[in-house]
Design a protein around this nucleic acid. Structure first.
Length: 900
RNA sequence: GCCCGCUUGGCUCAGUGGUAGAGCACUCGCUUCACACGCGAGGGGUCAAUGGUUCGAAUCCAUUAGCGGGCACCA
């Protein structure tokens, strides 16, 4: 036998991907049906610096499941891959490389540095894309994009120019988040707040009085060094304590400046002393107050977080923390330090380097968001798009954020990225244009200097769903694939990316960029902690692939879907076992496939003869599974889809169908009956492999290719002419006519009988090799017919020597007995093995259980309100159950009697 | 501070207004001619607590506790 007993995933993983790719199966062009519905996903472009982590593997699995499913359903399918240039991350990465050579980017200069980044990108960037091949991701590599591609860069400039011309992009001086380490401005979303155990310093400021009497106002601050830049003190207008001081002047210590004390609603009288020092140049809230009250801005901290000349000679050049110490010390010496208390507050840090952010006033480019925000909110109001899954909480989180949106700082002081398409002439006039030529002709001079800054990485990412399809040109791809079908992403970029894509899509194409958004859960470590590089608790998907196989890993990830869950190897192991189960089921089919071949006519019978029960049953189960899986995938219920597939394959197909058909299939002599049984078996297997394929691409392809009788005719009609592959086979759609309640009911009775006999054997320690006699009593004629018709299978699976089916149970006293559903009874004569006392006890316990349940049901029926208010259907159900229990209970009583 | 989510057998998780589910782990038996990554048979949960709505609640509502997450210019 050439098929090994254990499935080795590596072999299949190495074999198929390259062929799929080479055959063009991943491209939408493989679909030859001009009327085919379209399905499109654009990948959330991973950072060019990134390598695959579990979060990617999760997203990619879900996207691939959907893409493969839709492709097999005949959709014209595009999953578009690509990468993000990731401005800051990439620049820092290359900086680190340079540092090893003892260089900084300034040693190279801008042009050489950017060249160097490109070189890095070509040599070691984008590892993640190769890792995606391993995952089996069916992306169209011919459409791979990078945010700095010429086409995408053109889209960026186009958007910038249009927004500028409409006044939605402007340049100005604002207080911004400045990272002193990365030397760039950051948007609010790139700043993280972390709790910080710090101190609250109470500083006393002398009030200037006419009569020379001494009066002081105490202000509280966490950042004493900023007092050097104070240009006012604010109190709440309703605060009685300070009412008479409003309008007076403060003599600012350590400086020779005098600043006003004024009233502003913003001030919370309850907090601190109720008086706030106002530093417009170094605090966002103070900045706002400064604007309201026309306060001067005194800059005392520079871009390197050092004190400026304006901070005073003593402080000039000091680091901000050193300056803090000195300020506090001097206040103490002057007797103006009232107290210092421990205080926990949150501090803003750079998301990337964790440096404490310095709010600074700086000239930057901003994007006005109000109009764009309204486009997104309007869309949500009108069409409910994008439809979030899970809807709770993301739809609300998304709209709440939009409603409170502030202007977006879009410039960055970096070299790697899209340089801002604005040029300045000698006089400082600005020309925003799509190209330098355009700017020159507008400026009527060649002496222009381009703005040195680049755009926030997310400025280009927000265009991804259409820039990748060719926009601003009206390409075929854009017409065909926009809007995309669904966006799959992690929740941490809903604001950074998802919302901005919606705004940009609405603004420039007038349509949502994607109808649905599926938000994945987070894969945590086994202690429930987020996986992170710094904690070193990450699990490398590639290691898991190596250990358990890609397909098994995909099942775990698909099951995870949108819920946070802890990683545990046990689960992967169980799906690894599942893969092995599939392998061996197929192995059995292939070992017995001579004379058989996959055949859509396999279950047709001549002149309408009814199929055997197990055939009708497996068709019913197969079609039911197909219906459930299709519904589940279409509604993003991946966990349910996996469960359905798992139990259909293992329980229905392996445990029952193969066993039931085994005798026919393994008959030694060739015969038409054997061929039929084998053909049916292999046909069901083939359908099962198709159902499984979106989740387990490798093993299904590996096995499908080996099945006898597979070929082009199994492909979805849209893929006519393609080289046969399970990837392009038609995804099984449920045929309602084949879902057969009667067959399932009859099969349930057979299974029940077999299980009861097995139970008796097990409980009474009958040796597996011993055959037993099985006596069945069934009052219903149909039940007797079913048992009779399947007596061979029952006998084999229950290890019975013979089976006798009668209307009434007629068993020797020394028998173990059990009650079946529908009032049937079974007895197994076991002379010498029966302890009558014990047996009566067993029956009594079973009867007790039934009676407990009956009592509950009776109480329910006895409640008049139940009969009145519950639906008749429910009331009937209870009555029927009660009758069934009564029947069984009576039978048990009789059985116990027979043992006396 | 505001908002949100979670709490189901030993573990990891599904589920849902009308008889509590899976996988793993556990117990017993099995070299049954596809598979010990297996086969068969079992044990195990008053679905966090309290109160309410309902004929009926693990499922809906409220409160509480524990855990987790998001948002926020309180100096």
């Amino acid at each position: 036998m050439e098929i090994p007993k254990t499935y080795d995933p590596k072999q299949a993983e190495q074999e198929h991907y390259a062929r799929w790719e080479a055959e063009g199966y991943f491209t939408p062009e493989i679909n030859g049906d001009p009327a085919a519905p379209v399905f499109c996903i654009v990948i959330p472009p991973p950072n060019v610096t990134g390598s695959l982590h579990m979060g990617h593997a999760l997203q990619h699995t879900l996207m691939d499941v959907m893409t493969r499913h839709k492709r097999m359903c005949g959709h014209k399918t595009l999953w578009l891959p690509g990468m993000d240039h990731a401005g800051i991350s990439t620049q820092l990465m290359v900086n680190r490389e340079l540092k090893k050579e003892g260089l900084t980017r300034h040693d190279l200069g801008r042009e050489k540095f950017v060249e160097r980044v490109w070189q890095w990108k070509h040599e070691s960037g984008g590892q993640i894309l190769n890792q995606m091949r391993r995952e089996g991701a069916s992306v169209d590599w011919s459409r791979e994009r990078f945010t700095m591609d010429e086409g995408l860069s053109r889209a960026v400039r186009e958007v910038f120019v249009r927004l500028y011309e409409e006044g939605l992009i402007y340049r100005g001086d604002r207080i911004v988040n400045w990272c002193p380490t990365d030397q760039t401005v950051l948007s609010d979303l790139e700043v993280e707040k972390t709790p910080q155990a710090g101190k609250l310093y109470y500083l006393q400021y002398p009030v200037k009085t006419d009569d020379g009497t001494e009066r002081r106002v105490t202000v509280a601050t966490t950042r004493p060094e900023t007092m050097l830049g104070d240009t006012g003190v604010a109190v709440n207008p309703k605060d009685e304590r300070y009412r008479e001081l409003i309008g007076t002047t403060i003599k600012l210590p350590l400086t020779n400046r005098e600043i006003p004390l004024f009233a502003d609603e913003y001030v919370d009288a309850e907090f601190g002393t109720g008086a706030v020092k106002v530093t417009p140049a170094h605090d966002p809230a103070d900045y706002e107050m400064g604007v309201r009250h026309n306060l001067p801005q005194v800059v005392v901290i520079d871009q390197h977080a050092r004190m400026t000349e304006d901070a005073g000679a003593e402080f000039f050049g000091l680091d901000r923390y050193k300056a803090r110490e000195l300020v506090v010390q001097q206040f103490e010496e002057l007797g103006l330090l009232e107290k210092v208390v421990d205080y926990e507050f949150s501090i803003s840090k750079c998301e990337r380097c964790k440096t404490v952010i310095e709010p600074l006033i700086s000239t930057q480019w901003f994007c006005r968001m109000a109009e764009l925000r309204d486009l997104a909110l309007g869309l949500m109001n009108e069409t409910g798009e994008p439809q979030f899954t899970p809807e709770v909480p993301y739809a609300k989180v998304y709209t709440d954020w939009l409603e409170n949106l502030r202007d977006w700082t879009i410039s960055r002081q970096l070299w790697w990225g899209h340089q801002i398409p604005a040029w300045y002439d000698d006089e400082g006039n600005v020309y925003v244009a799509r190209s330098e030529e355009e700017a020159r002709s507008a400026a009527r001079t060649d002496k222009l200097v381009q703005d040195a800054d680049v755009l926030d990485t997310w400025f280009s990412s927000q265009l991804w769903p259409f820039s990748t399809l060719g926009w601003p040109d009206e390409t075929e791809d854009l017409k065909t694939f926009y809007p995309t079908s669904v966006l799959v992403t992690a929740r941490d970029i809903i604001f950074l990316w998802v919302s901005r894509m919606v705004m940009a899509g609405m603004k420039f194409l007038g349509q949502t960029p994607f109808h649905d958004v599926f938000v994945t859960g987070t894969v945590l470590d086994k202690h429930g902690q987020r996986m992170s590089k710094t904690k070193l608790n990450g699990i490398d998907p590639l290691d898991v692939f190596d250990k358990y196989g890609v397909d098994a890993t995909r099942l775990v990830l698909a099951s995870t879907g949108s819920t946070d869950s802890r990683w545990n190897d046990n689960q992967v192991e169980s799906y690894r076992n599942f893969a092995n189960k599939i392998w061996n089921a197929a192995r059995f089919c292939l070992m017995n496939s001579e004379g058989a071949g996959v055949n859509s006519e396999a279950f047709k019978t001549e002149n309408g003869t009814e199929l055997p029960l197990h055939d009708r049953w497996i068709l019913s189960r197969l079609n039911r599974a197909a219906r459930e899986v299709n519904d589940a995938v279409n509604s993003y219920q991946f966990h349910e889809a996996v469960q359905t597939l798992y139990h259909f394959f293992w329980d229905d197909f392996c445990d029952w169908y193969i066993e039931l058909t085994k005798q026919d299939v393994t008959a030694e002599a060739a015969s038409p009956a054997r061929d039929t049984a084998r053909t049916r078996l292999v046909t069901v297997l083939e359908q099962a492999l198709r159902l499984l394929h979106p989740f387990m691409p490798y093993i299904t392809e590996e096995l499908w290719q080996r099945l006898p009788g597979v070929g082009e005719r199994l492909l979805h009609p849209a893929y006519k002419g393609a080289r046969p592959t399970v990837m392009l086979a038609a995804y099984p759609q449920a045929d309602a006519a084949l879902i057969d309640e009667r067959a399932e009911g009859e099969m349930a009775a057979v299974i029940d009988l077999i299980s009861r006999v097995r139970n008796i054997r097990s409980e009474l320690n009958v040796k597996p090799s011993d055959r037993v006699r099985v006596l069945v009593g069934a009052g219903e004629e149909r039940a007797r017919e079913v048992f009779e018709a399947n007596r061979d299978q029952i006998a084999r699976l229950a290890r019975a020597s013979d089976i006798s089916v009668r209307e009434r149970l007629d068993a020797p006293r020394a028998s173990a007995r059990a009650v079946l559903g529908g009032g049937a009874e079974v007895a197994v004569p076991l002379e010498g093995l029966i302890d009558f006392e014990q047996e009566r006890g067993r029956l009594a316990r079973e009867r007790e259980k039934l009676q407990k349940e009956a009592a509950k049901l009776e109480a329910q029926l006895a409640n008049p309100q139940f009969a009145e208010r519950a639906p008749a259907e429910k009331v009937n159900e209870v009555k029927e159950r009660l009758a069934d229990i009564a029947g069984r209970s009576a039978a048990l009583a009789q059985m116990a009697e027979a043992l006396k």
